[in-house]
Simulated assay, not measured.
Amino acid sequence: MRKYKPNSFATPGVNLGGWLVLEKWMTPSVFTETDATNEYELSQTETGIKRIQRHRQAFIQEDDTKWLSRAGVKLLRLPIGYWAIEDQPPYVSAKPQIDWLMDTAERHGLKVLLDLHAAPGAQNASDHSGSGNTNKVQWHKRANRQKTTQILLNIADEYGDHPALWGIELLNEPLVATWYRRWQLWRWTQKTSQKLRGKLPPRVRIVVSDCYQPAWWSGRIGNNTLDIHHYQCFSDKDNQATALAYHQKLLAQQSNKYRDYSRQQPLIIGEWSAALPPRIASSNAEFAHCQSQLAIPSNVDAWFYWSYKTENPGAWNFRDCYSKGWFNDTRPHAADQLNRQKRSRLI
């Protein structure tokens, strides 16, 4: 089996979540005085399109990219919908914003991972997955799979040669509840990757979600990059834990697994956060959890915090956490300073 040698230092990145694919919990003000619970529903309200366009103009601006560059962030994972480069009613294209971000990122030394976060028919049951009906996952229908492949090829045609493009992620967190669905997704991944690779420069990565099943997907995606999402605040076991020690032990176990996976193919942590379950969460506990997790990315090529910012402070808001000193080691020259400190202790 082919062995892959991971980078010794993970490149820091953030997700630009809640911008071009809305999530109400991240930006509740966009939904005020409406009954809409997701972008699909909001797009069909009387003022929905205007609200969305105003939000797109205001939420991420050039000052944000300047700040991220100064903070030592190198990569941006940009969640986009299948309406990204052309209208897909009721959704409205976000191409002007993507064009702007790609050019702005290049100016400020940032690279972009374009992540198809919302697919035709919805690839999972979340409110951001491409359908207002969160009870039905219909991406696996042949027409939706074919449409998704074409959308990815269109994205490659549009941005494949852009200097700021770091990669294209095929799907975000697709749901595979049965072995047949998993096989179906795997075959689609193989075929779509081959078509994309024919359009993309070798430097541009093709990224594949682990579907929260990394042990199965690792080693089965060829030269593509595997995306693992690491959270410790959603499962029943995580929520039942009453001590930070449980999360530290779990983190250590997962770190060993990630090290093994990273030998099979390039690996990234596409989403992670310092958030902990409510019964444990506190500023001190989440700070400690954040510092512990920052040790894991040495096994991966890159990590992307979820998310750059939200309307409220807290563990989901990278900018807020950074301002508290939680990410001092991502600051420019921090690695050089850390190495000097280590050498001084040895003298």
Rank of each mutant, 00 (worst) to 15 (best):
T178F: 12
Q184F: 06
A177T: 03
W166F: 15
W188P: 00
S193D: 11
L185F: 15
W186H: 15
T192N: 09
R203F: 02
R203C: 01
T192P: 04
K195C: 01
W183T: 10
K191W: 15
T178M: 09
R181H: 10
G198T: 03
K191D: 15
W179T: 15
L185H: 14
E173Y: 07
E169Q: 13
A164R: 07
K195E: 04
Q184P: 01
V176G: 00
L175W: 05
A164W: 07
V176Q: 01
R181D: 14
L165M: 03
L200K: 14
R181E: 13
R181G: 02
R181Y: 13
V176E: 00
R182I: 00
L185D: 05
W166G: 04
E173P: 04
I168N: 10
S193F: 15
G167K: 11
P174D: 03
V176I: 01
L185G: 04
P163T: 12
L185I: 09
W166N: 12
A164S: 15
L196E: 07
S193T: 15
T178Q: 07
E169Y: 04
E173F: 07
L196K: 11
P163K: 11
P174C: 06
S193M: 13
K191T: 15
K191P: 02
G198P: 01
P202S: 14
T178N: 12
A177C: 00
R203P: 00
N172V: 08
W186L: 09
P202V: 12
Q190R: 11
L200N: 13
Q190H: 08
R182H: 02
G198L: 05
Q184H: 12
W179Q: 14
G167H: 12
P174M: 03
L171V: 10
W183K: 12
Y180R: 06
L165S: 04
A164N: 06
I168F: 03
P202G: 03
L200R: 14
L196P: 08
T178W: 10
P163D: 13
L200P: 13
A164Q: 08
T178P: 13
A177D: 02
W188K: 00
L196G: 11
P201T: 02
L185Q: 09
Q190G: 06
T189Y: 11
R203L: 00
P202C: 02
Q194A: 09
W188Y: 06
L175Q: 11
A177Y: 00
K199N: 10
L165A: 02
W166S: 13
R203E: 09
L171I: 12
P174R: 04
L185Y: 14
